[in-house]
């Protein structure tokens, strides 16, 4: 099993509903967020191109945060989801410094926190909150090892990319382009 998410940059309108859904589902402390929306503009006026991406932890297959964590508090859980065990975390910040996507933060209670692909929902067979709530239905979630999952099908049909593949992290957040 290998969970992944694919996000359609051509459908996303940048409404940030995913951000709010996550904050509510995961009781993210005020002033923090586990996912965020990026607007990337490229080209020169009047030929400008706009790409909107909803970003979060990439649940890396070769996660530097897991490698650098001195206590084993950051670990790979089922389906390759990278989690933090708050009871083992000393809050040293090594994982934060090692994540090229800046996807982690220090929870006000002292341990480190980040996107979990809503593992509590996924284990019950539900989709992550951000995917569920997206008004344009631009996010797809599922198991890459299952060729019939939403995400496998989209990745077969559409051109896609990952962020900073050159960092060697083997990201599992795909952007359909």
């Amino acid at each position: 099993m290998r969970y992944a998410m694919a996000i359609d940059t051509r459908k996303c309108v940048g409404c940030s509903d995913c951000v709010v859904a996550c904050q509510i589902e995961n009781k993210v402390p005020e002033g923090f967020c586990r996912d965020w929306v990026v607007e990337a503009t490229s080209g020169t006026y009047p030929k400008l191109e706009l790409e909107i991406r909803s970003e979060r932890c990439n649940q890396c297959g070769n996660a530097p945060c897991v490698r650098c964590c001195p206590t084993g508090s950051s670990f790979y859980a089922d389906g390759g989801i990278v989690l933090v065990d708050p009871d083992k975390c000393i809050g040293c910040g090594a994982c934060i410094a090692s994540c090229p996507y800046d996807a982690r933060y220090v929870h006000p209670e002292g341990f480190v926190d980040k996107c979990t692909f809503c593992i509590q929902r996924v284990r019950k067979g539900q989709r992550p909150a951000c995917v569920e709530v997206c008004p344009t239905n631009c996010m797809y979630f599922g198991d890459l090892d299952d060729p019939n999952s939403e995400v496998s099908i989209k990745l077969k049909e559409r051109k896609h990319k990952t962020l900073i593949p050159e960092a060697g992290t083997d990201p599992h957040l795909y952007f359909l382009i």
Binding site: S16, V19, G31, C33, D35, W36, V37, V38, E39, I96
Partner: peptide, 14 residues
Amino acid sequence: MKEELIISGRMNPR
């Protein structure tokens, strides 16, 4: 030009 902005207002302390 290439410009990337976080438009959902991420301001995670530190």
